[in-house]
């Protein structure tokens, strides 16, 4: 079976005197059938860089991105156009996408015109209203307004209405909900789930908020310093993380339940000491200096991402980059 998107050994090194390995040998795939894949990791772990490469905005230092089997950097103009229609981005702050001079609905009108989606004005109007309703917006609260008259949550959903009109196959959403509130967040995520279930649209969902990833389900990829530490089904990883970093990450989620507070106090331990520039070489496990289970071999070579070999875990679909499982 062919995959919709294949990311193969991606590497992005930013130059200068100190080289930054923003992305360091990342591979994963998004299947043909509609799926949601969450990419999680702390700030600076390379999430946005991966998104920019997949969108074709940044040429990687090494590695490939295949969309329906074709390398996206082949730059065939006709193919590129199709790709740009089928893979759509939704970013953190959509405000920059809007021109404050025009009415907010212009972002919809432009798409309708560009892709010739409507034959008449009335048809265009009906289509806009349909798209707005598909993202839980009432047409009368958006149409005729300027972007600054909309709330952040409304602007963010208007971007989804635009995406809805284009019917892409894949949405790349980089921290789309970090600026909007809990109340609004649920409805935004529900729209992505609807897109997947009803319209066959897949999403690569980038976030540092694990509770939203958990809500979306699907697959999860845990990044740390540009490398994948663990990959698997979101529910399984959340319930039973294998990699020590994934374990630390998941146990640190502030559960919205005062009776389930963090057990261990990290504030006194060695973990709090971690800062930049601790050790130079990258030919090792990058989590070694923070890992409670660190062994000698962890310093000697990079652990590869492999199917987890652990009898503590029943499910098959799980990859871990840690010597504890190899």
């Amino acid at each position: 079976m062919r995959d919709l998107l294949v990311v193969e050994n991606l590497q992005q090194v930013f130059g200068g005197r100190t080289r930054t390995y923003a992305v360091d040998g990342v591979s994963f795939r998004i299947p043909e059938e509609p799926a949601i894949v969450s990419l999680v990791g702390e700030s600076g772990s390379g999430k946005s860089t991966i998104a920019r490469i997949i969108l074709g905005l940044l040429q990687p230092t090494a590695g490939r991105v295949l969309y329906e089997g074709t390398d996206i950097f082949t730059r065939d103009r006709k193919w590129n156009r199709k790709f740009r229609g089928e893979v759509q981005a939704v970013f953190q702050d959509p405000y920059s996408v809007y021109n404050p001079v025009y009415k907010a609905e212009r972002v919809l009108k432009l798409v309708i015109r560009k892709f010739g989606l409507a034959k008449s004005k009335a048809e265009a109007q009906a289509l806009m209203e349909e798209a707005l309703r598909a993202v839980d917006l009432r047409p009368e609260e958006v149409l005729g307004r300027h972007p600054h008259q909309l709330s952040g949550g409304q602007r963010q959903r208007l971007m989804l209405a635009r995406v809805y009109l284009m019917r892409p196959r894949l949405i790349i959403a980089d921290e789309p909900v970090s600026m909007i509130d809990a109340g609004m967040r649920a409805s935004f995520l529900n729209i992505l789930l609807d897109f997947q279930e009803r319209h066959g649209i897949s999403t690569l969902f980038i976030t540092h908020d694990l509770s939203t990833a958990m809500y979306l389900g699907g697959q999860i990829i845990v990044l740390y310093q540009g490398r994948i530490m663990e990959r698997g089904q979101t529910r399984g990883v959340m319930k039973d993380p294998q990699h020590p970093y994934a374990q630390l990450l998941i146990s640190s989620i502030p559960t919205p339940d005062p009776r389930k507070r963090w057990e261990e106090d990290l504030s006194a331990g060695p973990l709090a000491e971690v800062g930049p520039g601790i050790s130079s070489g990258r030919d090792r496990c990058l989590f070694a200096e923070r890992c409670p289970a660190v062994m000698d071999r962890c310093w000697g070579a990079r652990p590869l991402l492999q199917a987890a070999n652990s009898n503590a875990m029943s499910e098959a679909d799980r990859d871990v980059a840690c010597y504890l499982y190899q």
């Binding site: 809990a182 967040r185 649920a186 409805s187 529900n190 809500y215 529910r235």
Partner: peptide
């Protein structure tokens, strides 16, 4: 409206 584990959709 807090998203929780367990896969139930919550309404905003």
């Amino acid at each position: 409206a807090i998203p929780r584990a367990g896969g139930h959709r919550v309404e905003g």
